[in-house]
Amino acid sequence: MSYALIISEVRRGVFEERNLDSIGMAHLAGKDAFLLIPEGNYNLNNSIVNKIIKAKLEESLFLNPLIITELISKIIGTLGAPEIVIFTHSSSGIELASYLAGKMSLPIITDVSGYDRNEQIFFKSYYSDKVFGQFKKAKESPLVITVRSGSFKDHVTEKGKNAEEITVDGPSGIEERSFVEYVEEEKTGVDITKAEFLLSLGRGIGNKDEIPKFEELANLMKATISGSRPVIDKQWLPKERQVGTSGKTVKPKVYLAMGISGAFQHIAGMKDSECIIAVNKDPEAPIFQYAHYGIVADANKIRDKLKDLLQG
């Protein structure tokens, strides 16, 4: 039987919403959706998949490349090989998917955000969404993919009946890699999620010495400063100021993005802002697709001009 095996992402009792994109991908591809999930009470609509495979192990053991691979081997042993194995494109998803692909010599395509059903072509991002590669598998074998959050959830349909449930035994833990604990980010004074007006800075501003000049502008405009991943990585701004999937999700009244090209992980953290104004030198920068207003210019020049105008 031709089925899609969906590896669900669950953490601290929560069935992550991005799993819906994995399920939507299976539906779009016209495959029966079999969902692998650890035992436990998760908030999951069980009429959107055909089968739920419950792994008998603790949740903290589940998202471990070595353990997932063992579970999937067992499932293949009982149900036969799936047509496709679907993971979320997330921190754990990429780790599990790539390890599985290597272990079982399966083709893999990651960060899939589009699918052409007729041609069986998968679209994936190159160069932070500036272009997309169109891929096909070149080997008769199950394909492993990771899917981008937000890309396929609209394809989820109800099956009209509850999924059949089966269980699979899981290992009790392995010595080579083990979970110790979760670590929360330190809480500090600034909470960018509460700001009404964010002045957000990206790598396009050039270097760290430009930051104080943006702080002056922020003071004049009464804006709060935030930044994209590269700016945080380079330690131009502290981590608590980071907007994006690995930082904060923000929805201010105005998001003024300066020198940010708009990698998907950044867009995911700010796309619901009420008004987005983007300044970037590259007229094709992806951020212009999400912004309400766009300016093709050097962010530093716009900054200086705005300061002049505000200082009268």
Binding site: E95, K103, I108, D111
Partner: peptide, 21 residues
Amino acid sequence: DQFAATGGILAGKMDLPYASM
């Protein structure tokens, strides 16, 4: 190409423990 996969595939092939991110 943003694949984020070479390290994991290699680990699977070599049967070595793997961690990303």
